[in-house]
Simulated assay, not measured.
Amino acid sequence: MKMKQTLQALACTALLGTAASSMAATVNVGGLDLTTGPTFGVASVYENVVTQPGDTLAGFGEVTQINGVALSTLCDGCELTYTFGGYTVTDIDATSVDFSGGWVNFYLGFDGDNDFNPFASDGSATDFAAASNGALFLTLAGHQIDAAGNTFAGTGANIGTPSAVGFGAGLLDVDYTGMANGNTAGVGALANTFFDTNTVAALFGGNADFQLGASFSNMLQPHPGECPGGPACLAGSVDFRGSVGVIPEPETYALLLAGLGVVGFVARRRRP
């Protein structure tokens, strides 16, 4: 009896240790340290002005902190930037705008690719190039938020004009193809598997991977000479809320199988 209890305790310890390691851990993805569990990222955003149905919203930005920690603390000498596009206006008036489609690509840059600074560059073309160099880190696609098939919705004042100001919200899914909604990034993003957790409740299309919130106005334009018709004539902030999962290492799988094996052995020994 004592031997059986010892084996059961060892099995439980193995299983609990595996579970605990997956509940809260730090994973390094391409040189960026991420903590598993709920994730809140804050970023800048620069985007164009949309005026009518059929227009496409696009832009770029930089993630400055994750879960309240400055990005420079999470990776040495790096930047995490992003570009987005494919958000097509389906309905617009002075106080609201709806979009369908949409994609977002994140890039992790080190050394020469750590170069995003829109207020020191010579124009939006340079900014876009700086926001899209480095290693492809994450590829996302818009997730349906209403019965009409929209993926992002904004409200505010003077929508559709260069003096637009307001807020928006939407949902996103990990896109392993990197080709959804007109995206051209392709496959191979480093962090897709870690963020594919389906932890954001959604009314349509099952759970999503990210909740997206944004503010926008014509204040602090990096290149006012390009406005009002340029590609970065609205600016603001964005937050991405999702969750980071953990991919068990081979030794973790071995420990789990060993624990299950011990449980099975004990169960067989206890049979009459």
Rank of each mutant, 00 (worst) to 15 (best):
K4P: 07
Q5I: 15
L7C: 09
A9E: 13
C12Y: 15
L15R: 05
L15E: 04
T18V: 14
A20T: 12
S22W: 14
M23H: 15
V27G: 10
N28T: 10
V29Q: 10
V29W: 08
G30A: 13
D33V: 08
L34A: 07
T35N: 05
T36I: 11
G37F: 03
S44K: 01
V49R: 00
V50M: 14
G59S: 09
E62Y: 14
V63Q: 09
T64A: 04
T64G: 02
G68A: 03
S72Q: 02
S72G: 12
L74H: 06
L74I: 09
L80I: 02
T81G: 00
T81R: 11
F84I: 09
F84Q: 01
G101S: 12
G109F: 03
F110C: 08
P118K: 04
G123H: 11
G123C: 12
A125F: 11
T126Q: 15
A131H: 01
A135G: 12
F137L: 00
L138K: 02
T139C: 05
I145R: 00
D146L: 00
A147G: 04
G149L: 07
N150Q: 11
A153C: 09
A153L: 13
T155E: 01
G156V: 07
G166E: 03
F167P: 08
F167T: 12
L171G: 00
L171S: 01
V174Q: 00
T177H: 06
A180M: 11
N181L: 01
N183C: 10
A185C: 04
G188S: 06
L190S: 03
L190I: 01
T193S: 13
V200A: 11
V200G: 00
A201R: 12
N207L: 04
A208M: 02
D209Y: 03
F210C: 01
S215P: 04
F216K: 13
S217E: 11
N218W: 08
M219R: 13
P222W: 00
H223L: 02
P224I: 05
G230V: 04
V238T: 02
G242A: 03
V244C: 03
V246Y: 10
I247C: 13
P250R: 15
E251L: 15
A254C: 07
A254M: 10
L256D: 02
A258I: 14
A258Q: 09
G259I: 01
G259F: 08
L260E: 11
L260N: 08
V262M: 06
V263R: 12
F265C: 13
A267N: 11
R268C: 04
R268G: 01
R268I: 13
R271E: 15
